[in-house]
Simulated scan of single mutants.
Amino acid sequence: MKYSAMILAAGSGQRCGLGYNKLLYRFEDGETILEKSVRAFERQADCAQIVLVISEGDEEIIRSLFGNRVEYVYGGASRQDSSLNGLAAVCYDYVMIHDGARPYVSDEEIQACAKRLETCDACLLMVPAKDTIKVVEKGQVMSTLKRESLMIALTPQCFKTALIKECTQKAKRDGAVVTDDASIVEMYGDRPVEVVCGSYANIKITTPDDLK
């Protein structure tokens, strides 16, 4: 089954404190964070399209990193806007949406998502929560959540393209604020979002400690 990959790379990454887009940080092997994220999908035989959502200010340097296989779209004012801009360029029936700040996604994770998409319309990589999670309000613990039912969302998050487009458009219309694409389908879709077991190594580069 052929699918599109949409990689979000339009953020500024201010929490990393680099003074530039963190996705352009180079590891010791010479590759940037973004290159590693994109290469993961370039390796997949069934990935027929790669759409890279970028900021206009980073366009020149990002275009210098990749060949003609990558398509470029400008991001928007919000994450939902960036997703909508990227989805407008998607031309296959299924899409994997990946955070460019997750350079350690494995071939096995991507292939497991592709396999699950053969039997469902929405799924995402997740790992079980290791820590105890407490609800805190105004500096006081209000409750402790049952760890057995908690999982941490990763990317890629994968959808039938028509479904995620429709749900994202509805979220934009309503001004809904969400932190990931699966949440949009949870809110506006009529089909379940299934879980694909991921790896704890698939971390998101967020702070300087993540670069060590």
Rank of each mutant, 00 (worst) to 15 (best):
I7Q: 00
A10D: 15
G13M: 09
G13I: 06
G13V: 03
R15Q: 14
G17P: 04
G17S: 09
L18E: 05
K22L: 12
L24N: 05
L24H: 02
Y25A: 03
D29G: 08
E31Y: 09
T32Y: 04
L34D: 00
A40G: 06
Q44W: 04
C47F: 06
Q49S: 07
F66L: 02
N68Q: 10
E71G: 03
E71C: 04
Y72T: 05
G76E: 05
G76P: 05
A77S: 15
A77L: 14
R79Y: 13
L84I: 15
A88M: 14
A88V: 08
A89D: 07
A89N: 04
C91D: 12
D93H: 08
Y94M: 05
V95C: 03
D99F: 11
G100H: 05
A101N: 11
P103I: 05
E109H: 05
Q111T: 14
R116K: 15
R116N: 00
R116M: 09
L117N: 04
L117I: 11
C123F: 05
C123W: 02
L125D: 00
M126N: 08
V127F: 05
V127L: 05
V127D: 02
V127M: 06
P128L: 07
P128H: 07
A129D: 11
A129Q: 13
I133F: 14
K134M: 13
V136D: 08
K138F: 10
Q140Y: 09
T144V: 15
R147V: 10
S149A: 13
S149D: 13
L150H: 05
L154W: 01
P156F: 09
P156Q: 06
Q157W: 01
Q169R: 13
A171F: 03
R173Q: 14
R173H: 12
D174Y: 07
G175Q: 11
A176M: 15
V178L: 13
V178Q: 03
D180W: 03
S183A: 15
E186L: 13
Y188M: 04
Y188G: 02
P192I: 11
P192Q: 10
C197S: 15
S199T: 03
Y200I: 09
T206W: 12
D210F: 02
L211A: 08
